[in-house]
């Protein structure tokens, strides 16, 4: 049921042309090669600007450090080998244990490396702040996300439709996610789109993502949330603008997500297939986030006294 698109868009190709990067172009190409072979469909194969920026920072930081790390490892093994006890040609300096110059170099190499990284951290944290809206001519689409035991609910307040375990978004237009949880912690994560963020009860986190072109991918929860956690995976489809409108129109035929239907969703269930709702109470998300609708009840009460050993059957509940 889970699908994804093989792609070859690589983070490695987004390199700026600074001298530093050129100097390590070899290792970049090496990384890109491994990446191409190994990472299609993952975070290094982004479908939108957030993922592209994030993976670029990931690779830049790795390259900055590899520039120090590789020579250091080679130096360590060369010194160990050259000064092996059996090599009597090597000088023996039994009392040599201090050199101010070497100390100065030794403290400054990691310090300088960390300075570079600190720059990446400073700039990257601000530019890729999940709460920061994306630069775009188009107004963002609003999507409200509720993590439930164990499925994802996506509410489209502007369209007044909703879906379970299937996120549909228009291609080329930013999407503003408001994310909360109706039970325990989860993390909303679509690897190919970029940044993840926690879904937490009683709190609303925000995230801005965009898919550049029509594509199919998947999302997952990145925070363990209980027995049904492994199936907290959802399909992600980005559609051309017309097709998105078509999807919304088709979704309107679905059942209504009222309080009764929502209470059903609050109960624990495993491996829930995607579905859509044709009408949604516009205040539902607010009521969930402020816990006016109480959070999910957890495992079914009333089972025979289980002496601490709760047994839930694997698979469907």
């Amino acid at each position: 049921m889970r699908f994804r698109q093989g792609g070859s868009r690589m983070g490695g190709l987004h390199f700026t042309r600074s001298a530093l990067h050129r100097a390590y172009r070899g290792s970049v190409l090496g990384l890109a090669g491994i990446g191409l072979a190994a990472c299609s469909g993952g975070v290094l194969d982004p479908l939108g600007p957030v993922g592209a920026d994030g993976s670029k920072i990931l690779i830049n930081a790795a390259v900055i450090m590899l520039a120090i790390v590789i020579p250091t490892i080679l130096l360590a093994f060369w010194i160990a080998w050259h000064f092996r006890a059996s090599n009597r040609k090597a000088e023996y300096l039994p009392y040599w244990s201090y050199s101010g110059r070497i100390e100065a170099v030794v403290w400054s190499i990691p310090t300088l490396t960390v300075l570079f990284i600190a720059g990446e951290i400073w700039v990257g944290s601000h530019r890729l702040d999940p709460f920061r809206p994306l630069d775009s001519d188009l107004a963002p689409l609003e999507v409200q996300v509720v993590s439930l035991d164990w499925k994802w609910l996506f509410i489209y307040p502007q369209q007044r439709v909703a879906s379970i375990n299937h996120l549909v978004m228009p291609a080329g237009r930013p999407v503003h996610f408001s994310i909360t949880s109706a039970s325990v912690f989860n993390v909303f994560f679509v690897p190919q789109l970029g940044s993840m963020i926690y879904a937490m009860p009683g709190m609303v986190s925000q995230l801005h993502l965009q898919a550049d072109n029509p594509a199919k991918t998947w999302g997952i929860s990145a925070q363990f949330s209980g027995d049904g956690f492994s199936d907290m995976q959802f399909d992600v489809t980005s559609l051309a603008s017309n097709d998105f409108d078509g999807w919304v129109a088709a979704a309107r035929n679905g059942p209504t997500l009222d309080r009764t239907a929502y209470d059903g969703l609050l109960h624990q269930s495993h491996d829930v297939p995607p579905m859509t709702f044709g009408a949604v109470d516009p205040h539902l998300f607010h009521a969930v986030a402020t816990q006016r609708i109480p959070p999910g009840p957890g495992p079914k009460p009333g089972a025979p006294p289980h002496a601490g050993r709760e047994v839930t059957p694997a698979g469907k509940d």
Binding site: D53, L58, A61, A62, E120, G124, R127, G194
Partner: peptide
């Protein structure tokens, strides 16, 4: 250190 870079941590 990669994981200490917040935007990289957002992916990993």
């Amino acid at each position: 250190v990669l994981l200490a870079v917040p935007p990289a941590d957002f992916l990993t």
